[in-house]
Amino acid sequence: MKARERGIMSRYDFKKRPVVFIYSLSVLMIVIMMFTMLYPIAYIFMNSLKPNPELFSFPPRFFPSEWVWDNYSKSWDYIPLTLFMRNTLLLFVGNMLSIMIITGPAAFGLSKMQVPGKRFIALFFLTTLLIPPTTYIIPNFINIKELGLLNSFWAFWLPAGANAFYLLLLKSFFDSIHHELFEAARIDGASELRCYFQIAFPLSVPIFATLAIFVFNTAWNEWFWPSMVMHSDDRYPLATAIYKYVIQARMMDWNQRFAILAMVTIPPIVIFLLFQKYIIRGLHLSAVKG
C-alpha cells in the first residue's frame, strides 16, 4: 500500500496526545467555519419560502412552517426582473466584446508585434494600475458626463477595454505562445488580423474564459457605479435595481425580498460550481492585481 503523502504533520505526530488534541480542535474550527459560511446562504433560500411574520419570530426558526412558493411569483411581478437581467447581460456581452476587440489586440501587439515606442506605450497602459480608482471616481463621472455618455451602455462598454489588469493578463498569456507559430503563419501569408483572430485567439480560450468570469462578476455585482451613471429603469443592471427597489424599499415584505435575493444568488452559484477551475485560476491571478 502506498503511504499517503504527508503534510505538515506525519503519521507519528498522530500518536502524540497534545497534537491529536489540537488537530481535532482545528478540525472542529473548520467545521464551525463551514457552518458559518453555509448557514447564512441557506437562510436566503429558507427565508424566501417562509410566511412573512416567521422571519422575525421568536425564537428564530430555520425551516419554514409552511412552504410559501407564492413568494416567488409575487416578487417576480414586483419589479421587472427580466428587464434588469437583460441590461446586466448586455453589459456583460458588450464589456467582453470590448475586451476582445480593444484590449486583446493591444496585448497581442505589445507581445508579438513590432510597435514603435513599445516601452512607452506599455508604460502608458500599466501605470494606470498604480492609481487607486476611488481617487478619481468623481472626475471619472464628470468625464463621462462631458462625453455625453450618461445613461448609455457605451459608458460601460468603452471603458471596459481600458483595463490595464486584463491587458497585463492577456499579454503575459500571449508571451507564453511560441513566436515561431506566428512567424510561420506570416511567411505563409497570413495577415496580422488573421494571426490574432485565428491563431492567438483560439489558443487563449482559457485566459478569456477566466476574464469572462471576472467580467461577469463585475456586471452581476456592481451596483454603485451604475447607479451614478444610469438614470432609468431600462438601463439599470440587476444589482443596481435590486439595491434601489429591494434593499432600500421601506414597505416590502421581507419574505418577498428574500425571494428576489434568492433568484439573484442562484446564477452565480451555478456558474461557480460549473467553472470552478477558471475561477480559482482567476483568483490566483488577482493576487498580483493592484
Binding site: A106, M113, Q114, V115, I131, P159
Partner: peptide, 28 residues
Amino acid sequence: KRYVWGFVFVIPAIIVFALFLWTPIVKG
C-alpha cells in the same frame, strides 16, 4: 508594414485608455 499593423492593433486601446482613464486622472 508590420509597424503599421502593430500601430493599428494598439491604437484603439490607446484611445480608450486616454479617454477613460488618463483624462479623468489628469482632469481630477
